[in-house]
Structure formats: structure tokens, C-alpha cells
Design a protein around this nucleic acid. Structure first.
Length: 366
DNA sequence: AATACCGGCGAGT
DNA sequence: TCATACTCGCCGGTATT
């Protein structure tokens, strides 16, 4: 029997709720957590906001200036993101959540899955008890509310959690899946974002039920050989992804430049980014085989350039050498029409520092 | 023909 | 007008073997 019971935990409006706890005086007011880019006084975007602000149309991703406009007649509180603090809170919470099952997967700073198949002996009532305990613990520990979803796989557990927010606990029994899924608009399906939603509507697909029964061949043609049929499977509530802890597969760092660049004139910024990435590689005991750069142009197009190395590296000097070369050649090949607004670096194909350079080059060796 | 690599794009927090 | 900082994954084209 393969039937599992999965619990999804999602902390409600995490950054903003952290601030509400840390500064009780702002509770009840619109709270907006901002990423200031430093270009001008107000440039930047809203990272997240509390429900008071969302009700007034201030949500993730909108410009700070737009948020200020919308909240101009309120006692709204605008705060700068404090990642370090949220990470501390997150680590404490995730540690507590982990203790409910050895099968644990953290998927972001504020989301995690647990496989409680064994712990519950496949009993949903028992899973609900665990869900309640998790909510109580997070409340006791950090005074934060979260939303919990319980279902037979990660996809459905997440969708269940999403369906009752904030402070929800939603159980999706296996025999209720169709009733739950079928009427939902396709945009509610994880993996279907704004672009995919638009294209699906052009195909006449509006609900998850329609997608679930749609011709897989047409979906393959439209969305790709693998992705198309996969979307249909998701729409049927099918998902075999195991709950497992995963190591990060890449690190990246990106900054917004004070002034748009048409040449590599941001050595200080690059030094800071390479230093940062090097420290992260070393503290995770890994080296990288691929080093790349990221450029976001003034018209907000993202460009990538990358180089696969013969030998994996982790030092700031080496990463700086490769990325500065990539930036130089990038700007040489660009017709200086498109300027760089944001620049960043990325390392991937990570290998553990201890045992690398192992047998892969044996044939060359002999 | 299979695999590796590269760069674009999309989604999600 | 405004438009962050990440991580992960898929796609198609091209290069390599």
C-alpha cells in the first residue's frame, strides 16, 4: 500500500507577522515589508504585507511608491526586510516542526512538509492531532499563526493549506479530492502561474476539472512534452514526490546598481557578491563547477552567461576572476543600447569539498 | 543518437 | 509611472562525443 499522509505547514504572512510580534504596537495597522533598492528614496518593491494591508490592495511585488499611494490615508507601517531576524525565527520553528516526523522537507523560509504516514498509522484523525499540535507549538514558541494542510501527497496538502488562510487547518480526505479540485480555477494549481493561465484560457481551459480531462497530446504540444502531461496529472491530484530533505543546488547573489551600467564598472559590488558566495560555499562545505553572471536590463529582461570549469572552486579570487571576465565579455558583445539595471552572480553544480576530483578523470589519468 | 551545456523563461516565496 | 532577492525546474537549441 502506497497511501501516505502528508502535512503542509505554511506560516501566515511570515515577514509581516514576525514584525507584528516584535512590535506589538503595530498590530491592527497595515504592515508593509519593503525591499529598498537604494536607487531613489522610495524605489523598491513590497516583499510581503499583512492582511490589513492586503485588503487595501497592497500585496507582494508592487512598487513601494504604489503601496504608499494606496495607504496614504492610513496609519500604515513601512518596514525594511530583516532577513537575518526572520531566518532566526524560521530556524526555531522548523526545528520544532521537524520534531514531529523524521520525514521532513523545508521548501522555503516559511514552508515545510512532513510525511506522517508511519507516525499516524495512516489515520487522518491522528494526523489532525499532529496538525493541531504543530499549530499550538508555533503559537507557544513564537506567537505566530500558520496554516496547515493534510492530504495524501504534497500537492494536495499544499492546496489544502492554501484553501484556509490564515490560521487554518484543512484536511482533504482521499474521497473528497475530486469535489475539492474540480471546480477550482486553473490558476489555483501550483505550477500554473499568470503566463500558463493565460495560455490555458486561450485553449478553453478554465477549471482544474477541464485540465484533468484535456487531451494530453495537445497539452504536450502547447506546454512541452513533459510539462504538458505533468500539468494534467497535477490537475488529477496525482503527485508522487517524496518528502525529503534536500541540499541546495545553487547559490546566487544579485544587486540593483545605483546607476545603470554599459560596462563592467561595478567592481566593488562584484567583490562583495563574490565574497558572499565564497563564504556560503565554504560554510556548506562545497565547491562549484559552474559559475555564471546574471544581468537584468533596463527593460527588465534577464540575461545569463555561464562557464563550466575544469576544476571546481570556492575562493573569492577565483569566482571574481571568472565572473569579471564574463561581465567584460557580456558588455563587449552587447550593443550598448541595453543597459544593466541589476547584476548578479550564480554558482551551481555544487560538489562536496571532501571527495571531489575522484574517478571522473580516470581515463585521462591513464 | 545520446549526453552535456547554455541561455531563456516561468513559478513561487 | 513603478518594477527585490532569491531558489528551483523545464524548454529548446546547439555542441560534443
Amino acid at each position: 500500500m502506497n497511501e501516505r499522509i502528508i502535512i503542509a505547514v505554511d506560516i501566515d504572512y511570515f515577514f509581516a507577522q514576525c514584525e507584528e510580534v516584535r512590535r506589538p504596537e503595530i498590530q491592527g495597522k497595515p504592515v508593509v515589508i519593503c525591499v529598498y533598492s537604494g536607487r531613489t528614496e522610495l524605489s523598491g518593491v513590497v516583499s510581503t504585507s499583512n492582511y490589513v494591508a492586503r485588503a487595501l490592495g497592497v500585496e507582494s511585488g508592487i512598487p513601494i511608491s504604489a503601496a504608499k499611494r494606496r495607504l496614504s490615508n492610513t496609519d500604515a507601517v513601512f518596514l525594511s526586510v530583516d532577513q537575518e531576524y526572520y531566518k532566526l525565527v524560521s530556524d526555531r520553528i522548523m526545528g520544532a516542526v521537524h520534531s514531529f516526523s523524521e520525514y521532513f522537507e523545508q521548501v522555503s523560509i516559511d514552508e515545510a512538509f512532513l510525511d506522517v504516514t508511519n507516525a499516524t498509522h495512516r489515520d487522518y484523525e491522528s494526523a489532525i492531532e499532529i496538525g493541531r499540535k504543530i499549530k499550538d507549538q508555533i503559537k507557544d514558541l513564537e506567537k505566530l499563526t500558520c496554516s496547515v494542510g493534510i492530504a495524501r501527497n504534497k500537492l494536495l496538502a499544499k492546496m489544502a493549506a492554501d484553501s484556509q488562510k490564515p490560521d487554518g487547518l484543512s484536511v482533504l480526505h482521499p474521497d473528497e479530492i475530486s469535489v475539492f479540485l474540480d471546480p477550482l480555477p486553473i490558476g489555483k494549481l501550483p505550477g500554473v502561474g499568470p503566463k500558463t493561465e493565460k495560455r490555458m484560457k486561450e485553449l478553453g481551459i478554465e477549471t482544474i476539472s477541464t485540465l484533468a480531462h484535456f487531451d494530453p497530446g495537445i497539452l504536450a504540444d502547447e506546454f512541452g512534452r513533459n510539462l504538458g502531461p505533468q500539468l494534467a496529472r497535477l490537475a488529477q491530484g496525482l503527485d508522487d514526490e517524496p518528502v525529503r530533505e534536500r541540499e541546495p543546488e545553487q547559490f546566487s547573489r544579485i544587486v540593483t546598481l545605483k546607476r545603470d551600467a554599459t560596462s563592467f564598472n561595478f567592481e566593488n559590488e562584484l567583490r562583495s557578491m563574490t565574497g558572499d558566495i565564497s563564504r556560503r560555499l565554504r560554510s556548506s562545505n562545497s565547491k562549484c563547477k559552474v559559475v555564471g553572471i546574471i544581468v537584468i536590463t533596463t527593460n527588465l529582461k534577464t540575461k545569463h552567461r555561464a562557464r563550466t570549469l575544469d576544476v571546481s572552486i570556492d575562493s573569492e579570487q577565483e569566482i571574481f576572476a571568472v565572473t569579471s571576465e564574463l561581465f567584460k565579455s557580456y558588455f563587449e558583445s552587447e550593443n550598448s543600447k541595453t543597459q544593466a539595471r541589476r547584476v548578479g552572480i550564480r554558482v551551481s553544480n555544487l560538489v562536496s569539498s571532501e571527495r571531489q576530483e575522484s574517478v571522473s578523470n580516470l581515463s585521462e589519468f591513464f
